[in-house]
Nucleic acid binder design. Structure first.
Lengths: 131, 131, 131, 131
DNA sequence: GTGGTCTAGACCACT
DNA sequence: GTGGTCTAGACCACA
């Protein structure tokens, strides 16, 4: 399910965080589902267990997964995302940066919003934008 | 014009890249305008010249500025952004990540697109989305 | 009577220790009252008997309960808590830590003492502080 | 300044977090002060740099210190503690536990509140409780 | 079996 | 010089 890019600027543990978060958000994993153990995932991805562990700790901090001592790690019912204030702020900042980058690349507003629309749709489905 | 946040996850040289790019995109600087020399900017910002130099190299790589030997550094005509393919790809990837993050934070599609719309408008102004 | 939070940083056996101690302290259980057997409690809570056993060992160590061979386990008369010196020391240490945490969170002394007062009152009732 | 207890149940990195937080709260270190580098502190305490790093990352997450890339780590002006909601919740929970423990140890309400008063005073000084 | 902590030692990005 | 990431491998607590 998770595919790492070996020579990427984004650290491995962040790639795991992003991809696992994506799996949950897309519904591929649901609340209560067991995620692979640290050892399992590390041997699947051929990386060090500590790296997986770091990713899981970050995901737990964000309320995406929950660890049950001695039993394993599970997708949490993510009704209440953690660190919401900090994360929303970061989202806004990054969005601002991307808008600049888009215009710097010569994209028109229409082209940019079209990019977003297609991404949004693949996640939220066909809700009307008026939702 | 450029304000650095010492306490920030994004490196100083990237902050310079982003902010100078923003100045150009917003029209505060136009093609042909002279950009402060490495020494000038580094003393204005109280940072190491190497840091400014690194930023300028990146900006030149992206075709935002152009150094003319012996004359100085200038904003280049932004008709032909460089590395467009790579940068567009990166833009798409980051957008995809932010959409996931937004949904993970519990935002609705409407809320997310509203965040973007307000950012877009401050840059592209009131062009109709049909532009 | 005992409610476990599977998702919690505190181990299950400690949760049992704390909650049983709380029941005694609040008067819900009194000296001589029979405590469920290890098997009973483990099947009530759907957990491993070893976990309950570990909790009971700790409670006995602290003098909260007393096992009588062949008869069962009972709340002991809490006149002479065991390990009082060690436990009082630990209490002091943790209090010191919490005071730091409270101030670090920006609480005023008044706010902090108010937090404690409300907790104290629910346990000791309305004794005057002069008790 | 920082003294580790080798054979303690609380992990080394947490001891560092607590003690450094205490130094800040007590005014021994102030906003802007440089904290020892990861390598310095690790060699002072004779522990692994990674352990210090873990502590510093936690302290940064809580808004106690700030890292400046390539320059070092500094006490931040802690006007806005991070993760306040989560931490306040944890504080309340632990307080509740300590009250039970105090009564279980046979302390009277007066004795317990006296313990708190002396700790509070050493931190907040002689503000009236009515502050 | 699970995850958490710690060590030793390496490499890299940033300043 | 700084901190951040990753690996390899060890030990421990919890269930």
């Amino acid at each position: 399910m998770i595919r790492l890019q070996e020579h990427s600027a984004t650290p491995i543990y962040e790639q795991i965080v992003e991809q696992l978060k994506a799996l949950v958000v897309k519904g591929a994993m649901k609340a209560g589902d067991k995620v692979p153990s640290v050892r399992e995932l590390s041997s699947m991805l051929l990386i060090n267990p500590n790296t997986v562990s770091k990713a899981y700790q970050e995901l737990e901090r964000q309320g995406v997964i929950k660890t049950i001592r001695g039993k394993g790690t599970f997708v949490s019912s993510n009704e209440a995302p953690r660190m919401a204030a900090e994360r929303t702020e970061a989202l806004q900042r990054e969005l601002r940066r991307l808008v600049v980058e888009a215009k710097s690349l010569g994209l028109t507003r229409k082209q940019f919003e079209e990019m977003i629309r297609s991404e949004s749709q693949s996640l939220w489905g066909d809700e009307r934008a008026a939702d």
